[in-house]
């Protein structure tokens, strides 16, 4: 199986892009960075299913499509179902000998936003993971329903102001914690589950290659900084993601077979989470004296999570 080399960035840059420009995502959107990094990591034929969300509505605006692979748009909830059904049919037709080109390597990939993954498509995703189809699910996690005006989702972290959990005199934004989707997917016993970020392109490309090679359902959660709803300048997408990974708001790790946890990136200097929160407009209210306790709580949660991840990595269970 031929796969693009990701040894260094120069080698990687010889990949032929299969995600075209002139899609209508916002300038500086991390979605398209992630999709490009992933699709450039392989030269296999891909069958892609996209749930409704920013990625879907912006890359297939009639009469244009930005995808140079087989691509299907399906409902908000069931990109995992579409990918797993395509995979099941492919297997059946291969067995029957009715495929026109049975030797071509084909991989099945489903994309969904955090709304489609954490909330609306959760049951469908869980079902596909349980049935054990050979596909990879990518969640583009921008922590809100950005396509419809930035409503809260169960991925929105505590303290963030969204259009349906607004900060004001009586509220500091969302009061609930973010759902730990990576742990939930690992608990399905999936052979490969990871949390990756676009600023670490190498671990992203390698993680995707690993997921494609692995037989069975794989899940990758990717951090997608949203310039519109996180409220920062479009040019800062990568530096915000750097702050996210270095403050350990988004630790980068993988879980193999539901148990074996590997941390893929350890920041040399762990920065306080305040630096990450302060760079975004959606957390501005937390710096008022009466909301300071929320920042302390976020920092405490992060420290505990990092301690937990390190212990799990060491214990290999």
């Amino acid at each position: 199986m031929a796969i693009t080399s990701v040894k260094n960035l120069k080698e990687f840059s010889t990949a032929n892009d299969r995600f075209e420009g002139s899609h209508l995502l916002c300038p500086g959107c991390a979605h398209s960075m992630i999709v490009r990094e992933l699709m450039n990591a392989t030269d296999d034929n891909l069958v892609v299913a996209s749930s409704t969300g920013c990625l879907e509505v912006c890359t297939a605006v009639y009469p244009y499509t930005s995808w140079d692979t087989s691509w299907i748009h399906i409902g908000f909830e069931n990109s995992a179902t579409a990918a797993s059904c395509a995979e099941a049919m492919y297997k059946a037709r291969k067995k029957k000998g009715t495929l026109p080109n049975p030797d071509a390597p084909v991989k099945f990939v489903a994309f969904g936003g955090d709304g489609a993954t954490y909330d609306i498509g959760f049951q469908w995703l869980s079902g596909a993971m349980e049935r054990g189809h050979d596909f990879t699910y990518i969640c583009l996690d921008n922590e809100n329903y950005a396509n419809t005006g930035g409503q809260r989702s169960s991925s929105t972290p505590i303290g963030a102001s969204t259009s349906t959990a607004q900060a004001g005199t009586h509220s500091y934004g969302k009061t609930q914690k973010k759902k730990d989707i990576v742990a939930i997917m690992a608990a399905h016993g999936a052979p490969y589950v990871a949390q990756l970020a676009p600023n670490k392109w190498k671990s992203m490309a390698k993680g995707f290659q690993k997921a494609l090679e692995t037989e069975g359902p794989c899940f990758i959660n990717t951090v997608s900084a949203c310039t519109t709803e996180w409220k920062f300048d479009p040019k800062d997408t990568i530096s915000i993601t750097d702050l996210a990974t270095d403050s350990l708001m988004f630790p980068i790790y993988e879980i193999i077979n539901g148990t074996e946890l590997n941390i893929l990136y350890r920041p040399k200097n762990i920065i306080p989470v305040e630096d990450y929160l302060g760079a975004q407009g959606r957390y501005r209210h937390l710096f008022k004296p009466e909301n300071r306790h929320v920042i302390e709580r976020i920092q405490k949660d992060i420290d505990e999570k990092w301690e937990y991840l390190q212990r799990r990595e060491e214990a290999r269970v």
């Binding site: 990687f12 840059s13 010889t14 892009d17 500086g28 398209s32 990568i238």
Partner: peptide, 20 residues
């Protein structure tokens, strides 16, 4: 210096890079 940072992070496939 042809580091290709701009190529990998361009969200719009707008950096033209050929043969490294």
């Amino acid at each position: 210096i042809d580091c290709q940072n701009c190529w990998v992070w361009c969200p719009d496939t707008s950096i033209i890079s050929r043969d490294k």
